[in-house]
């Protein structure tokens, strides 16, 4: 018999409670239980970065975090970036600089960049490459992503 555990967390400002098996990964919980399918599942061992979400403001791999570990946490997923029909400056910058092609890596990347730009409004080039280095993107060759980060910095500054 599988035992479950009652957990509660805030995701994109909304409060959720649910019963989960301890073995449920956070990404499966977000997608399967909460229906927040913007977070993608890639490698399932913490390497590709597609599943990256913000956990209490910090970018983490939700495929190698259990939902029970996030009990009581405040989470942010890609669904929490835009305000209604208005894209977040990071999303707008990705769009304008063509920082995505297939889009599979994009939600995770944008959340890592969101964390970086919340920590510093003027990141160094090394900080930018370190941040996006934690994400596999097989389409863009990264240059357009770096340009999107620079444009997002600009947009956030003049916002």
């Amino acid at each position: 018999m599988t035992s479950t555990r009652r957990i509660g967390m805030t995701v994109n400002g909304e409060r959720y409670e649910a019963d989960v098996e301890p073995r449920t990964t956070l990404v499966d919980f977000l997608r399967g239980t909460l229906g927040l399918t913007g977070t993608h599942v890639g490698c399932e061992h913490g390497v590709c970065g597609a599943c990256t979400v913000l956990w209490n403001g910090k970018a983490v791999r939700s495929c190698i975090m259990l939902a029970v570990q996030a009990d009581g946490a405040e989470l942010k997923t890609v669904e929490g970036l835009a305000r209604g029909a208005t894209l977040h400056p990071i999303q707008q910058a990705f769009l304008e600089k063509r920082g995505l092609q297939c889009g599979f890596c994009t939600p995770g990347l944008m959340l890592s960049i969101d964390e970086l730009l919340a920590r510093t409004s003027a990141p160094t080039d090394t900080e930018i490459t370190d941040t996006i280095g934690g994400h596999l993107c097989r389409c863009t060759g990264y240059q357009a992503i770096v340009e999107a980060v620079h444009l997002a910095i600009e947009k956030l500054r003049t916002k």
Partner: peptide, 26 residues
Amino acid sequence: LLSGGQSLVPLLNMRLARPAVLVDLA
């Protein structure tokens, strides 16, 4: 013992580890 899980949870995902109970120190 489960601490940050950056090695252990991949091992669980691949079923290379099969503990009866995880003791989360967090």
